[in-house]
């Protein structure tokens, strides 16, 4: 089997997740789309590791899984904090800094 279908799958997954980030306003959906983008990147690293026959890409993908876990902890804590403040999951409501700048 050639690597092309795997590359196509990674590009397609990245684009679907990018569409999710730019077109949705639910904070949880934005978070999951960012996770999907990170996962598609680690898929590319694994494919290149197999294409080149070198373990470096796999090690990078392994470190990337750890980064995904750290990002999950921080982002979910942030969502819970924002929900407690605003009582909504709408990303349009997270504009306190913008309002301050306009009033000043």
């Amino acid at each position: 089997m050639t690597p092309e279908p795997f590359f196509f799958l990674a590009a397609l997954l990245f684009s679907i997740a990018l569409v999710g980030v730019v077109s949705r306003r639910n904070l949880f959906v934005i978070y999951m789309s960012i996770e999907l983008m990170l996962t598609s990147t680690s898929l590319v690293l694994v494919i290149f590791s197999k294409v080149l026959g070198s373990a470096d890409g796999s090690v990078m993908a392994l470190l990337m899984i750890a980064v995904i876990a750290a990002e999950a902890a921080l982002f979910l804590a942030m969502i819970i904090h924002l929900y407690r403040r605003n009582r909504t999951l709408d990303s349009e409501m997270c504009d306190e800094l913008k309002q301050e700048a306009n009033n000043a």
Binding site: F8, V44, S54
Partner: peptide, 26 residues
């Protein structure tokens, strides 16, 4: 709007390498 970017990413990656390595090192 994103679909040309998808095509660009796919082309740029798949032009570089056509085959898997035959080395079994990973």
């Amino acid at each position: 709007l994103v679909s040309p970017v998808t095509f660009l990413i796919y082309k740029s990656m798949s032009m570089a390498y056509q085959h898997f390595s035959t080395l079994e090192t990973v």
